[in-house]
């Protein structure tokens, strides 16, 4: 197993564990940034440059910042001094283990895992651009509309209503 993959996978998984287990929310969000960076590295290992850099721009650049802003706006940056786990956390662990077992079984039983690695593709970004502009141009436009609607909606939801301000 290549050492690069091993290091990236370990960094990703360990920081994901940290992100869901830290008590302080700021630490959680910083670990989440490391997870996103590790995933971007894994995408680059898979020769998916476009998705890798989109991951860096969208997740590390925008999503992480938005989460930090939400932590600040909800004043939850202090370390809580009460329990952080929900009352039924044992059942939750059981559910997660069952789901992981089902996924693992599906992976092990699948015939797809015997596939050989195909030769590294050249210029995937150009091919993706072609696909987005020809075959997937309608979904691209629809997703642009969705983003615009979501941005307007987010502003309206987060806007202070007048009744409350008085």
């Amino acid at each position: 197993m290549s050492p690069v993959f091993l290091i990236l996978a370990l960094v990703t998984l360990l920081s994901a564990v940290a992100a869901i287990s830290f008590r302080n929310l700021v630490h959680c969000s910083l670990s989440l940034v490391v997870t996103f960076a590790g995933l971007a590295g894994l995408y680059l290992q898979l020769h998916a440059q476009f998705v890798g850099f989109a991951q860096v721009l969208v997740y590390i650049g925008a999503v992480a910042i938005l989460i930090v802003f939400a932590i600040l706006l909800t004043r939850s940056a202090d370390t809580p001094n009460h329990a952080v786990l929900a009352p039924g956390w044992l059942v939750g662990i059981a559910v997660a283990v069952v789901v992981f077992g089902a996924l693992g079984l599906a992976i092990l039983k699948s015939e797809a895992i015997s596939k050989k690695v195909p030769a590294a593709p050249e210029a995937t970004v150009k091919q993706i651009g072609d696909a987005l502009m020809n075959q997937y141009v309608l979904p691209l436009e629809v997703i642009g509309l969705l983003l615009t609607a979501a941005m307007i909606g987010a502003v309206i939801i987060a806007m202070r209503d007048d009744k409350e301000a008085k």
């Binding site: 998984l13 994901a16 564990v17 992100a19 869901i20 929310l25 959680c28 989460i67 939400a70 932590i71 909800t74 939850s76 809580p80 329990a83 952080v84 786990l85 929900a86 039924g88 956390w89 059942v91 939750g92 662990i93 559910v95 997660a96 283990v97 789901v99 992981f100 996924l103």
Partner: peptide, 15 residues
Amino acid sequence: ALGLLGVVTRRNILV
């Protein structure tokens, strides 16, 4: 599975 664990066990909505 880790994400699912976080969703079902943590109390804070941001986590």
